[in-house]
Structures are given as structure tokens and as C-alpha cells.
Design a protein around this nucleic acid. Sequence first.
DNA 1: ATTACTGTATTAGTACAATAATACGGTTTG
DNA 2: CAAACCGTATTATTGTACTAATACAGTAAT
Lengths: 120, 120
Amino acid sequence: MEWRLDKDRPICPQIEELLAAGIARGEFAAGERLFSVREVALQAGVNPNTVQKAFSELERDGLIFSRAGSGWFVSEDTSRAVRQVEELARLRTAAYYQGMRALGKERPDMIRMLEEVSDE
Amino acid sequence: MEWRLDKDRPICPQIEELLAAGIARGEFAAGERLFSVREVALQAGVNPNTVQKAFSELERDGLIFSRAGSGWFVSEDTSRAVRQVEELARLRTAAYYQGMRALGKERPDMIRMLEEVSDE
DNA sequence: ATTACTGTATTAGTACAATAATACGGTTTG
DNA sequence: CAAACCGTATTATTGTACTAATACAGTAAT
């Protein structure tokens, strides 16, 4: 797994989102064991405490669960991950739309710029 | 002017962006006097220091300038504001696109969601 | 000139995210 | 059993954004 983290945004939610997206798209199957906290911290170049926090919040959301001393595992019900990612995508889209409106851009401008950006 | 600030993002750049956008779209003409630091702070409900910092950075970018004791004014060359806002819109669009890709969304998904969001 | 605004600067305090360095106990494996 | 992994918890420290409370000097109007 590639941990492409944006330095200008809080790391913890980014780890949550990347993992949730991986589960939602089926990259990690139900019941499968995940990387350990220390592994992720090493790979992503962040502090283990930050990873632990991210995992704990995903556990609170019911996406993953831990067995003390053994590791982290994907929950049986992966539909939660799908719904959570869908909701996040909607929120991001709304934020993008409002932000662009504040800059004086309308929907056609956004679509045009999206096409420019994705043609690279 | 309406100062609609997002609590979950740093305030200072938000003020910069709103003001730059106002200049870019011609809401504030070249040479025109702007609100005072204290006025903006009061209207937006933030600290005067934060507004001062935002204004100073816009001055560094050449969008506005100050006359000590008198106030802040829009620079003669407003094309800088236009270019700056255009660049910001591009950056935002790229960030949105990459972020959505990380969530497993493709361009058609984004355009569909944009249409859903803007129909409200 | 006095008054009431301006911009500007300084210092301190608060809140939060992330880092750093450990420590403890559970699980697995040889 | 012992070693090497796990998750978990704690305390301290750093960096940043923002707030708070002033203070000082320039400008403009009465």
C-alpha cells in the first residue's frame, strides 16, 4: 500500500481515509489482517501514536477491529466502509463546489478545469 | 462583504482568498479603500492580528497596499488578483481530483456529484 | 489642537496535531 | 519457555494557528 500523505493536512484523518477507501474498493477483504501500527508508521514515515489513533477511530466507526497482541483486522461488514467513503466523497465535492463559488467560478468552469487537470 | 469562514481551516488564508476573489471579480476597484483591519475583525468575528497578517501577505503579493494611519487600498494593477485567483482555482481543482481518485472515484463520478451538489 | 480613527508591533496564553521515548501485557512461533 | 512480534497507554516536548491585551505613531476631521 502506498501512503501518499499531504503534508499540509492533518495526517491522522488521511490515514483513516486511505484505509477506508482500500476497504471500500475491496483491496482489503472482510476478516483480512491489516498492517501493524508500527509497520504503517514506518512505511508512511509518521509516528506510531498517530497511526494508533487513526486505527482506533476506524474501530469506533466499525470498519476494523483489533485483537490485542495479534493485530488489526477488517470487519465482516465492509458495507460500512463503502457508505463512509461515499459520504466523504459527497462532503469533499460540496466543499470544492462552495470553495470554487467563493472564487467566482461556476459549474462549467469547474468541469472544464477538472478535464484539464485529469488530462496529464 | 460577507465573511463566510470555514471553522475547520486556517482563517488567515481564507481571508486572503475572499479578498483576492473580490478584487479579481471587480467588487473592489483599483485604488479603492478597503475595510480597516479592526472592521474586518469585528465583522468576521476573528482577531485583528489574524486580519493584519492576511492583509500583510496580500501586500507582499502586490494585491493591496497600506498607508500608515490611513487604511488599506487596492493596488492599481488588479490583474495580479485575477491571476492569483485563477492559480488558486487550478490548485484546488487538482487537489480535489487527486483526493477523489484516492477514494476510488473517477472523473465521471466527480461530474455527477458536482451536478447533484449544485442542484440544491 | 484635540479627537477618533488608522496601521503596526510586541508579548503572553490557549488549543491542537504530531513527535518522541518509553513501558506493560497479550499472542504467536520456534 | 523464550524471543519477537503484536496492541495499548502514558508523559513530555515541539510547532503552528489563533486569541488576547496592549502600546505607539501616523492621518484626518472637527
